[in-house]
Nucleic acid binder design. Sequence first.
DNA 1: ATTGTGGCCTGCCCGC
DNA 2: TGCGGGCAGGCCACAA
Length: 267
Amino acid sequence: MPELPEVEVYRAAAQAVVGRTVAGVAVRDPRFVRGGVAPGELASRVTGRRVTAARRRGKLLVLDLGGGRSPAVGGLRLGLRFGMTGRLLVDGAGPIERLLHSSGRAEPRWDRLVLRFVGDGELVVRDPRMLGGAVLDPDEDALGPDALTLTLAELATALDRSAAPLKARLLDQSKVAGIGNLVADELLWRSGLAPARRAGSLDEAERRRLARAAPSTLRLLMRRGGSHTGDLMPARAPGGRCPRDGAELRRSTVGGRTTWWCPLHQH
DNA sequence: ATTGTGGCCTGCCCGC
DNA sequence: TGCGGGCAGGCCACAA
């Protein structure tokens, strides 16, 4: 599913439309537009503007849009979220062909948002389950520091004095941005930390382990090709055993999410 | 403020 | 073979 590694791939693909001008916007399902903005308003405000940058913060892809027809009006930003099954297609090609837990088929009704560009080309968000969405001027400040460049100090701020389970805190995008369920399990497994630990209970050495593991694990997953390529992933199933020590993995629910972890080396 | 829970959305897979 | 139920989880509204 789209976590930070996948959205980073989407961002790189979206660089191809930087410099192009939006000729038209098709919102194929009005529910895909989030944030209380009418689909028609989003379409009319985005149309005619030039894409000046494609950025990522956490799992959010942001297209910066220039002034367009009325330069005095100033810029605008279009935020794209991919939920669990959202794929990005640029000029007909998807940088990621298949997502875990999603279909690789191409039903026309799954193309929830289409940006057509002046001249040629288009950008499409194809999201079968429609847990993603498009947001006009997303509140980027509501997101925590990006997990790919997470520092020890940022992690300490995110965890300190919190009574929430450690994993729930890592999944909270306002505390750390970009970590989803699979990456969270992989990260905690690599760090030897139990997902249900109180976030604020980590000592200095444990915080340091986790802070070091976050960027390096994300980079490893990006090299391997996605958030589903972790070492723990094949064992996340009934009867699965820890790839490190062979203990039978436990399955529980933490932060409302299915969680697999090793009772032998995660404390 | 913090933390927890349920709902949304729908394709897919399993068991009957 | 068809059918129904459960599952997947990112995000948000809402409750305590």
